[in-house]
Amino acid sequence: MATPDFTEQTKALDATLTSIEKVLDLDAVRKEIAELQEEVGAPDLWDDQANAQRVTGRLSTLQAEVERVTGLRQRLDDVEIMHEMGAEEGDSDTLADADNELVRIKKAIDSLEIRTLLSGEYDERDALVSIRSGAGGVDAADFALMLQRMYIRWAERHGYTVEVYDVSYAEEAGIKSTTFAVKAPYAYGTLSVEAGTHRLVRISPFDNQGRRQTSFAAIEVVPVLEQTDEIDIPEEEIRVDVYRSSGPGGQSVNTTDSAVRLTHIPTGTVVSCQNEKSQLQNKASAMVILKAKLLALKKAEERAHLDELRGDVQASWGDQMRNYVLNPYQMVKDLRTDYETGNTQAVLDGEIDDFIEAGIRWRREHAAA
């Protein structure tokens, strides 16, 4: 017989999972899977590679989504049986295993519940993340590099693909800026709450007097666009510059002028790409980034116009949003949600899921207010 406390926890998790299943509408998802499987079976599917990649990618995403939900449902059923058997037989080891599994299931269900909060127009898309060092000199450049590593490590922990498009290295240490894509379902919706100004406080390793230094870095997150998105840029509005790719310290990593910089003349938006050996490939990748940034700019202007009509004069929530304090104490704190942890090294190693989940819940609450 399961203990009352364990039974209450499983009932609460069952109710949450049932609510998630309704929001996700698994019957509709399975219907779409069947339709996509028919498209995948068509002999001419790969005649249009872009469409084929879209279809197969969507199919894989939906199948993984169904497997994730049904897998959690099965685990919840199994853990109840495990706990009942342990209680009937007085087996403390089995009861402890059941309790530990229930904790893991709760964390997985909480994470899945966060996914149901991502319902924005572009939340399903891949994410383009740009990091730019701010005030703080060489410490800010080093901080920008630390943040790039943090997000790449976060993506690796989840098995997500990261493609670095451009890195501009600082002279002494760190980077001036970087742009990279995180390719995963709902990457944009998930990472968009990371946009804003991040602040680092520490004893500077670059100060021979060992003084404490405050530095800043800005993070921008925009969705990767698809061919069907309405963004048309006339050729005469773009200036194209080519140059040689370079690595840390200005060391040449490419002997030809293959890196590409695009400038959108009307808005002054500048993007660069140097990760490919071919100039044409770099130009194509840079155009992807430029279109994404122009769409984000268009959406921001629309929001600003609506705020003006409503008389909304509040500053954007994504300004200064997180502090990383390494001295005189250890603390990472989100200024919007008040979520904090003293395990600064784990955060900088990519353990930022709790910050992201708190940010998504915070955004939903404020959007509904």
Score class of each variant (00 low, 15 high):
residue 9 Q to C: 02
residue 16 T to P: 02
residue 22 K to F: 03
residue 24 L to I: 10
residue 25 D to Q: 02
residue 26 L to Q: 00
residue 29 V to E: 02
residue 31 K to E: 00
residue 31 K to L: 00
residue 40 V to S: 01
residue 47 D to Q: 14
residue 56 T to C: 09
residue 57 G to L: 10
residue 57 G to Q: 09
residue 59 L to M: 11
residue 61 T to H: 13
residue 62 L to F: 07
residue 69 V to F: 00
residue 69 V to W: 00
residue 70 T to S: 13
residue 73 R to G: 15
residue 76 L to Y: 02
residue 77 D to G: 06
residue 83 H to N: 14
residue 88 E to V: 01
residue 91 D to K: 00
residue 99 D to M: 05
residue 99 D to Y: 01
residue 99 D to P: 00
residue 102 L to G: 00
residue 103 V to A: 14
residue 104 R to S: 14
residue 106 K to G: 10
residue 107 K to M: 10
residue 109 I to D: 03
residue 112 L to S: 02
residue 115 R to Y: 09
residue 117 L to F: 02
residue 119 S to A: 10
residue 123 D to F: 03
residue 129 V to A: 08
residue 131 I to H: 03
residue 131 I to N: 05
residue 135 A to E: 04
residue 140 A to G: 01
residue 145 L to V: 01
residue 149 R to L: 06
residue 150 M to K: 07
residue 151 Y to L: 15
residue 152 I to R: 15
residue 153 R to C: 12
residue 158 H to M: 00
residue 163 E to W: 11
residue 164 V to N: 06
residue 166 D to F: 09
residue 169 Y to R: 01
residue 169 Y to D: 02
residue 172 E to V: 11
residue 174 G to I: 05
residue 174 G to R: 07
residue 182 V to M: 10
residue 184 A to I: 08
residue 191 L to P: 04
residue 193 V to P: 06
residue 194 E to Y: 01
residue 195 A to Q: 08
residue 195 A to E: 09
residue 195 A to P: 09
residue 198 H to Q: 09
residue 201 V to T: 13
residue 201 V to R: 06
residue 201 V to M: 09
residue 206 F to E: 07
residue 208 N to P: 10
residue 209 Q to T: 03
residue 222 V to C: 05
residue 227 Q to K: 12
residue 230 E to V: 12
residue 230 E to G: 03
residue 232 D to Y: 04
residue 235 E to P: 01
residue 236 E to I: 11
residue 238 I to K: 06
residue 240 V to A: 11
residue 249 G to F: 08
residue 252 S to Y: 15
residue 255 T to C: 08
residue 255 T to S: 14
residue 257 D to P: 09
residue 258 S to T: 04
residue 261 R to Q: 08
residue 263 T to C: 11
residue 265 I to Y: 04
residue 271 V to M: 05
residue 272 S to V: 03
residue 273 C to G: 08
residue 275 N to R: 10
residue 275 N to H: 12
residue 276 E to S: 12
residue 276 E to H: 15
residue 277 K to V: 12
residue 281 Q to R: 05
residue 286 A to Y: 06
residue 286 A to M: 07
residue 288 V to G: 05
residue 288 V to M: 08
residue 288 V to A: 05
residue 290 L to C: 02
residue 292 A to G: 05
residue 293 K to R: 14
residue 296 A to K: 06
residue 296 A to D: 09
residue 299 K to V: 07
residue 300 A to W: 03
residue 301 E to T: 02
residue 309 L to W: 04
residue 312 D to K: 04
residue 316 S to M: 13
residue 318 G to W: 09
residue 323 N to G: 10
residue 324 Y to P: 09
residue 326 L to P: 10
residue 328 P to R: 10
residue 328 P to T: 11
residue 329 Y to P: 09
residue 330 Q to S: 12
residue 331 M to Q: 14
residue 334 D to Y: 06
residue 336 R to S: 10
residue 337 T to D: 04
residue 337 T to M: 01
residue 337 T to C: 05
residue 338 D to P: 01
residue 338 D to E: 13
residue 339 Y to S: 14
residue 340 E to N: 13
residue 346 A to I: 06
residue 350 G to Y: 12
residue 350 G to R: 11
residue 353 D to W: 07
residue 357 E to Y: 14
residue 359 G to P: 03
residue 360 I to M: 06
residue 361 R to H: 05
